[in-house]
Amino acid sequence: MRDLHLQQLRLNQTQRVRLQTALQKLQDVSPSSAAATVAVADNIPVNHEDGVLKGHGTSELDGQVVATLCGVVERVNKLVYVRTLRARYKPEIGDIIVGRVIEVATKHWRLEINFSQDAVLMLSSMNLPDGIQRRRTATDELNMRSIFEENDVICAEVRGFQHDGSLHLQARSLKYGKLKSGQLLTVPPYLIKRRKQHFHHLENYGVDLILGCNGFIWIGEHVETSNGVMEGDGGNKVEESNESSSHSVPLGEKGQRLMSLETRQHICQIANAVRVLSTLGFSLTTEGILEAAKASISLGINTKDMLGAEFHVQTAEREVGRRMSLLRKKG
């Protein structure tokens, strides 16, 4: 019962040794800040003469600054705070996030975003289907469900915070909005670093990859954002499939247009690459994910076998190689 979280992999003895070696090497290579780790109720050494601002995760006891969280002590000028490593999502304005609608309320939608509170997307922060900029009328309020309904997956941006700490979102730009054909994965938020780009159109694969800062990752069929008009719900309507060109497009049992097998294959490969990196606790970057996906193809590993022990060990070893070569270039 004494469990390491990597226990979910069926490692034989050699694989276990290889994996531990790789993880150990990674730890040695990365800068460790063991000196600054604190646990709850540890004293944080501060220079009292300088004056100190007690930040997040600290509290005062008998004139001493004491930690209320476990993590690493960070100091910025006079500010002292504790940064947790396996942190919960900490929203910032401008973050791109992926969320799921849990409620359609008056003039706004509530979204679940893997945060302690739900986020709010106001009707006014959302483009209308006809694309016209105008005041929202009562009819618009009644038709909210035609835009987003319960359980829809949406991509949006953090606009600001409400007074009680919950988030306000906006989805005015065309790249935001409902996400349709694909799958949503949940990973620990601290594995996703903030970058310039969170939307990635993987051209070789025909796949959209969205790395939400809140830990929700969307992998779906590529959608062309055409000019100004919100995509209607064209997902599974019975289309006029009388076009003869549609023989190349697979049809489902109800005659609806199915994704091509190739695109689906790519989506599954990218999704499995994300799962593997997440299990190993590696940061999720587009390059890393594409690397892992390419490696699985070049090694001839079946998509479903990517979730097996061998590929995990190989990915860890590959990461060690990558970091070592980075170090060599620097040093």
């Binding site: 799921r100 409902k178 054909s181 799958q183 779906g220 599974n236 489902g252 097998l261 989506i267 490969q269």
Partner: peptide, 26 residues
């Protein structure tokens, strides 16, 4: 239980029909 959006449901159903499930299994 978290619900699924229409797009996600379609993805799952489509995968099962095409013998390629969300995690690559048949």
């Amino acid at each position: 239980m978290v619900g699924l959006s229409a797009g996600e449901k379609n993805f799952i159903r489509g995968g099962i029909e095409q013998d390629l499930r969300a995690d690559g299994r048949q």
